[in-house]
């Protein structure tokens, strides 16, 4: 659990921590929009470098953010492969003839099985997976004798490759930006900032305070409910539920024996909480005083100016068409 970096606040004291949560939220959105407008490789690399600079100057460990990206490696790889394989526009860069014969299809199947069984013993799983994929392609290409079921080609096109690159770098930048936000901002501050930003929506009869309250309460109750779930799991385990093993039918009962009590507990908790809030004179929609008040500083103005400039620059580049 401790390795998950996304969504976790890590105490520190760089300029990123001193910024107002509102600034950070707005800056993040501006930068994200900017990243989507970029269209050339060079500019993309510049953007990546800028984000890395923010990390360095904000004294956040690059390694830590990289670790946060790790759970998403699979998603990134998937989008990359998907684009490369199925986007067939632009110039043809590379093609490989594939033969589907009974022999090599069954060999490929065996490679998949072998990979499935041995992957848990290998340290560099990603590399191992790539090796397996390359191996399958090599198999399909080189063995062409026997009963041939069909022919195909593996082709890489220019457009496919560049789209894949853009999507991947954009995703990396977006995730890094949001990780910066959550690492440097306490959930409560983030919530306060969100509430403050959403306040103008009152014109549309959307109550930002309520939304913020809902978010705050859900964040607050995640650990509590996890703890309750753990208790119930132990209680059911002592009634002979083996959460580690069991057939499919047993699994269903295991889940039900956990979920039903969890539902009941959540409803009870929310009922209790509602009563406790009312007992302290909480009235939805009513004006409230605050313990923490957000303060706008010079730093925020500078930060916002910089990000606005960056966005303006990107827009300009796009309009001019460099």
């Amino acid at each position: 659990m401790n390795r998950i970096v996304i969504g976790r606040y890590i105490p520190g004291n760089s300029f990123l921590y001193r910024m107002d949560p509102r600034t950070k939220l707005i800056a993040m959105i501006l930068l994200m929009v900017g990243v989507f407008l970029i269209q050339s490789f060079l500019h993309m690399f510049v953007a990546l470098a800028l984000v890395t600079l923010i990390l360095v100057f904000g004294r956040l460990s690059v390694k830590r953010v990289y670790l946060g990206l790790r759970p998403l490696v699979f998603l990134l790889m998937f989008t990359f492969l998907f684009q490369v394989l199925f986007n067939r526009q632009g110039e043809l860069l590379y093609s490989l003839a594939l033969h589907y014969t009974i022999l090599n299809l069954s060999l490929a199947f065996m490679v998949v099985l072998l990979w499935g069984f041995t992957k848990r013993f290998i340290r560099f799983r990603l590399l191992y997976f790539l090796g397996a994929v390359v191996g399958i392609f090599a198999l399909l290409h080189s063995i062409s004798f026997g009963v041939v079921l069909g022919e195909g080609t593996f082709a890489v096109y220019e457009q496919g490759l560049s789209t894949a690159f853009f999507i991947m770098v954009r995703l990396i930048i977006i995730i890094t930006l949001s990780t910066i936000l959550t690492i440097t901002t306490k959930p409560t501050d983030l919530n306060l900032g969100l509430e403050s930003i959403l306040r103008p929506l009152r014109v549309l009869r959307i109550n930002a305070e309520e939304i913020a309250m809902i978010i705050a309460i859900s964040l607050r109750y995640i650990p509590t409910l996890l703890e309750e779930a753990n208790k119930i799991m132990l209680a059911q385990a002592s009634r002979g539920v083996d959460f580690q093993e069991g057939k499919l039918k047993d699994k269903v009962i295991q889940v039900v024996s956990l979920l039903v009590p969890m539902f009941i507990i959540s409803f009870q908790r929310s009922d209790d909480l509602a009563n406790a809030m009312e007992a302290r004179s909480f009235v939805p929609g009513q004006e409230r005083t605050r313990l923490h008040i957000l303060r706008w500083s010079k730093l925020d103005t500078v930060a916002l100016a910089c990000t606005s400039l960056a966005l303006a620059g990107v827009v300009l580049l796009r309009v001019v068409g460099w």
Binding site: I232, L234, A235, V260, P261, I265
Partner: peptide
């Protein structure tokens, strides 16, 4: 083992 507040384990 009967847990504290065992009523929560009913389902």
């Amino acid at each position: 083992l009967v847990f504290q507040f065992p009523e929560y384990q009913l389902f």
